[in-house]
Design a binder for these strands. Sequence first.
DNA 1: CTGTTAGCGCGTTCAG
DNA 2: CTGAACGCGCTAACAG
Lengths: 346, 346
Amino acid sequence: MATIADVARKAGVSVSTVSYALSGTRPISDETRQRIQVAMRELGYHPNAMARSLASRRSNVIALIYPEVATVGNTGGEFVQAAAQRARESGYQLVLWPFRDSEGKEMRNLARQGMADGVLVMEVCLDDDRIDILEAAKIPYAMIGRTRDVSARPSVDIDFEATVIGAIDHLAGLGHRHIAFINHSQERIDAGYGPAVRAAAAFDEQMAKRGLTALSRACEDSPVVGRKVTADLLTSDPRVTAFVTMNELATFGVYAELQARRLAIPDDVSVLGIVTSPGVGTLSYPVLSTMHSPGGELGRLAVDCLLSQLDPARQPIPNQLIACVLEPGMSIGPARTIANVDLGRS
Amino acid sequence: MATIADVARKAGVSVSTVSYALSGTRPISDETRQRIQVAMRELGYHPNAMARSLASRRSNVIALIYPEVATVGNTGGEFVQAAAQRARESGYQLVLWPFRDSEGKEMRNLARQGMADGVLVMEVCLDDDRIDILEAAKIPYAMIGRTRDVSARPSVDIDFEATVIGAIDHLAGLGHRHIAFINHSQERIDAGYGPAVRAAAAFDEQMAKRGLTALSRACEDSPVVGRKVTADLLTSDPRVTAFVTMNELATFGVYAELQARRLAIPDDVSVLGIVTSPGVGTLSYPVLSTMHSPGGELGRLAVDCLLSQLDPARQPIPNQLIACVLEPGMSIGPARTIANVDLGRS
DNA sequence: CTGTTAGCGCGTTCAG
DNA sequence: CTGAACGCGCTAACAG
């Protein structure tokens, strides 16, 4: 491996000149620059990342706290892909730190080893130790999601309120007045899982504001439970003509129960999946209309948000929210005016 | 940030003693070790990763070439998660290098900067430039998947032959003699996409060996095309009583077409999805029986395979193949003896 | 068992 | 516009 000294010797200049030519931190005459570049090419020179980091005290690496998420759908993958891509474009690399929520201390200790200049924290909860630990240690970070008090904390997140408003307006515009909402499990809501809490709050609030009837239910992430909850909803209020679901697996149960009851989608009942992964809508028949998470956009933004703190020259990025994207399917239609309970067909 | 020199001073020993206490490369008296540990604790010392890497010439980082895979299902996520986890257990970190297949040179150049000690290459094709480039540059690597000639190349992969044999034996044992196989697209087969090529070859060979009738079809990754191909298969050979699919999205089309024809699953036709992601079976009704990819296992193995080359003391890991895991659902039953074409029901 | 010290490859003052 | 030289924090001989 050729070093900077080899290049300097070959080009007949000093090492510092080569260094400056590399970083552009100082004006270099064109001729000198040429000679240096030729020398670099001929020697197959590649600057050593470790030496550079040691001397400059910046690793040019950002860490992604990568939670163990068992999910269908690939939003997480999109996020990671986009984040890695954006990091590379910005001259950084992305390392994966597979820490669980409870391993905040381990995370901080790793960060103190100087391997990463900053940290991206996924799946942040309303009350999240990790963020406190990072702040106490003065480690630059950006969170995906939000803690309860987000005022001065760098974050990017899905705009649940806008997403829910989009969903409700869409359905209400088609005459739906009794709309069910199927959330994640009560357990996750109680654990302060941001999406579950925020979306539910927004749903109830927006429905009330419009004088519509909201039927919200927590539901475990599974088709079987989704089906049970759907049955329960239809029984307890037969006027329901639309389902908004924020639970990919449960949505398959919604379809199953509707089909079992011979309720046609979308003629009798409309279904809209929100905060899903792109593509999952096409797995259902008729194709589920969805509002999918902007995983890629979030990934890029999260990186930008973090880098804006590492490099004071960059524009600081304000806390940013992105709404989910409507992916029209075939599962939404105008509301029926007759209660579905009367419509059993065989 | 405290340095090793601070620790040495505080403990009243030399820096090398601290260094050796840290690495355990040299015997240290218990008493000295105690003093050092106390000093480290009091100073909140954390060794600097960059300095360590520079001096030792090993970064303790491995890179994962992370392809842009647009897929439903989370096998990729499981792989990455498991790999990152295993790397951490082994004292390594995993960095993501989002390079496309065509960016072999860029990948090599990054590797030459010494940021990573070795490289994991996902989604390897039968003819893959990247592997040639890595070998030419003498960069340690392990591939997930296999090139055409795999003899001496470190790799881990799905055991497509064993998976296919498992699938066929299962179905043949239930009396199925005319079995359809739905593959990925012709385009991917032509591109030398390993899974598509290997599984198809294994399927035809094993079916022939058993005197069974194989109906293999390439199929784009989409429910719509999957449905068309299914219709075509049922029309061209009504004796088909079972589908083996290696195409998650197309499988939803298989279900749709069977339901449209009022063919009951599994009474009239059995369906088995192979090389799927865990959980996708539950998205279908009746629950699809699957043989899912061992993503986690592959991730761990890939890391072990690479690390065994970096550390000569480790046992070398032979090229290893892992079969997919049967996840029983409700979509497989005994074969009918009457051609399905005669069974239209309404 | 412990200490001394020369690098690892590069960034960045400071002097010219 | 260019060079010389020190230091980043640690590892690993070499010397005891």
